[in-house]
Simulated assay, not measured.
Amino acid sequence: MQYTRLGNSNLKVSRICMGCMGFGDPNNGMHTWTLPEEESIEIINKGLDNGINFFDTAIGYQNGTSEQYVGRAIRENAARDEIVVATKFLPRSEEDIKNNVTGQQHIHNMVDKSLSNLGLDYIDLYIYHMWDYNTPLYDILEGLNEVIEEGKVKYIGISNCFAWQLAKANALADSEGFSRFVSIQGHYNLIFREEEREMIPLCQADNIATTPYSALASGRLSRMPGSESKRLKEDFYADLKYKSSESQDLEIIKRVNELANDYDVSMTEVSLSWLLTKVTSPIVGATKPHHVEGAVNSVELTLTSDDIAYLEEPYVAHDLVGVMADNKVSASDNEKVWAKHTKNKI
């Protein structure tokens, strides 16, 4: 495994981040394909044994049970100061707003619940899961700064936002003496490259870490069409993200398979090797041991400049999908967006 610095933070992270959306009680949330506790911990331990020290979860994954499983695995099998734990919090709900829960108090409530779920004393990277159009940005930044000053959080990141929003947030943080966002978790992979238009250049200019989700396009970049996983059959959101672009994505997937055969490696290794030339640490989900092995092996595969150009050449612009397509919504609509994609309740 190779390691790198997470943007402007002091965190040293593995080049592969284990995505933990696949861990959690399958009877307690939207997804039925998630792994129960013991199986989840086995996969986490497989990652630890292969040098992965960076784990990404969220309070919204299977109603907090993902956080619980990740926390237990780390407490029982790793030295806490050698592990980087990232988790995410949701915007205020309509009920929060009606009850006059401020943005600051909401963040305190969320971080305390996540710490309880994890069974840990602090969170290394606390991530704003989706832009909250119903809460003043100042309130969010002040709340995040408060939990950092209390020692509950080391650094903050953001997910599912536009480049102008990230730039605006960090400019406000600078002007008010608050902590800046050190990372962005956006939708980015070989068949969805819209982040290259504005977000990636911003991050390169300001040394903001890039930790994209959907690194393998929900499995599409790890196998040829016709071989479906349980997740692809059951995950509405995963299907939504790529359904409208299947035909234009197929040529790229074929080229991934061609290079995998040429190098005698898996499609996963080729896809992630390409992504590793672009970002800090891609988030890679794993529910089977070979998922971990493929991700770890990708760090050792070096594609040539000709390979990279060959993979990139067929790409055409994609429409925004999912959370990013549901731009600027009301509090109740924000909850509907989240429910549509996760059906979770905290």
Rank of each mutant, 00 (worst) to 15 (best):
M1T: 09
L6M: 04
G7T: 13
S9L: 00
K12V: 14
M18Q: 09
F23S: 01
G24W: 05
H31Y: 07
T32E: 14
T34Y: 12
E37V: 04
E39Y: 12
S40T: 06
I41Y: 02
I43W: 01
I44D: 10
G47D: 05
N53A: 03
D56T: 09
Q68W: 04
Y69T: 06
A73N: 08
R75H: 10
A86C: 09
P91T: 00
E94F: 03
V101Y: 10
V101C: 13
H106Y: 11
D112R: 05
I123F: 06
I127F: 02
H129K: 13
P136M: 09
E146T: 11
Y155P: 07
N160K: 15
K168P: 02
S179G: 05
S183W: 01
I191C: 00
E194D: 14
R197E: 15
R197W: 14
L216F: 02
S218W: 06
G219F: 01
L221N: 03
K233D: 14
L240Y: 01
S244P: 03
S245V: 15
D249G: 13
L250W: 07
L250T: 06
E251G: 04
A260K: 06
S266D: 09
V270G: 00
L276W: 02
T277N: 15
S281A: 09
S281I: 03
I283T: 09
V284C: 10
G294H: 04
P314G: 14
H318K: 11
L320D: 08
G322C: 06
V323I: 14
N327F: 05
A331Y: 00
T342G: 11
K345F: 12
